[in-house]
């Protein structure tokens, strides 16, 4: 699961709201883990970053023309896209305007 949101326009949040949001994430990922469907909690990605272009120039990322960027990822186990989507539906990012992209990993042979 890849988490996307417009991280540049995050509303200001109080410490209490931040804590509540963290709890929502932890409860959600804990729920997936309790179903023995979590492979790797994954990580958050830095909001900014660098992009190496084809002409070797370096620009600040994420792409200026795209509002949304990838904020993090997790790896889950599911038998089908439908099952994976069911798990993803509880993701707290959906309540704050972000989205979750579900993609199957195709292992390197």
């Amino acid at each position: 699961m890849v988490y996307r949101a417009n991280f540049n326009f995050m509303p200001e949040r109080s410490p209490e709201e931040m804590a509540a949001n963290t709890k929502r994430w932890m409860d959600w990922i804990g729920s997936i883990a309790a179903q023995n469907k979590l492979t790797d909690r994954g990580n958050r990605l830095d909001v900014s970053g660098k992009v190496i272009n084809k002409d070797s120039t370096i620009t600040n990322g994420p792409y200026a023309e795209i509002k949304e960027s990838i904020g993090g990822y997790s790896i889950i186990k599911a038998d089908s896209y439908e099952a994976a989507i069911e798990l993803a539906k509880g993701c707290p990012i959906l309540t704050t305007g972000g989205n979750v992209e579900v993609r199957e990993i195709s292992p390197m042979q």
């Binding site: 709890k23 409860d27 990922i29 804990g30 883990a33 309790a34 023995n36 979590l38």
Partner: peptide
Amino acid sequence: LQLYNRLLQIEYSPMAALNR
């Protein structure tokens, strides 16, 4: 609850899932 959430991320067990 939060400790079980984290414990399950390290290692799943049915008992931990139930206690969580």
